[in-house]
Nucleic acid binder design. Structure first.
Lengths: 107, 107
DNA sequence: AAGAAGCGCAACTTTGGGGTTGCATATTGT
DNA sequence: ACAATATGCAACCCCAAAGTTGCGCTTCTT
């Protein structure tokens, strides 16, 4: 659960501005084909396709073929996992602060 | 805020298991010198040093020289920024779901 | 039936990340 | 004063990630 080995690939998928922009656009709930997503970007359709493949590999996006096009949609569950990791570290930090404070007052 | 351009470097710093492990160990609030942090890892001291430099570049860690050693400490503020980006996308997603539901019931 | 639209796959180039080794420097301890 | 400790800096590999181009296949459209 939220081990470093499990969380790192997730953050790696988020480590690109193009991919973050794609997730942002998909956050409105509407599945979109690649051409529609590539329209906003300055990149090639192929480049966008590759980025979507990366996001799909990380489980952040789902792909549903529909006729001749492929619709991509956001999968927010994985976003929650990334948040969980950050929360864990933050919680450990807060605990440490709490213990320190208690220890100081105890003296 | 939380533009893709601003958040991506932050996630990039989190995209490595070694670095995540370092953050985990520093989350107990105790600043540590490099040797202490390299002790747990299978890597060279240099490799750990480079990772700490990356974390420092992303603002996730603070460096305080103390005599001949350099103490590294966690800076949880930046963790919160990463969380904020994820929260934004999640919130937009929830809003979209809410609107969809409202629209359906309205019919 | 034929052209256009939308994708995927594969090959190729370039750039940057992760890691190591080697050396130079400053501090600590005896 | 000297040896050991703790770093930083720089040069150097290796490989994967990002992007492009080219080709071929399937599915609409007229």
């Amino acid at each position: 659960m939220s081990s470093a080995e499990a969380a790192a690939p997730l953050f790696a998928a988020l480590a690109d501005p193009t991919r973050l922009a794609l997730l942002r656009r998909l956050a409105d709930g509407e599945p979109r084909p690649i051409v529609a997503l590539a329209a906003g970007s300055a990149l090639t359709r192929q480049a966008v396709s590759k980025h979507l493949a990366v996001l799909r590999g990380a489980g952040l996006v789902a792909r549903r073929p529909s006729g001749r096009e492929a619709l991509y949609a956001l999968r927010p569950e994985r976003l929650a996992e990334a948040r969980a990791w950050l929360d864990e570290v933050a919680a450990q930090w807060d605990d440490a602060l709490g213990r320190l404070k208690a220890h100081v007052e105890e003296k």
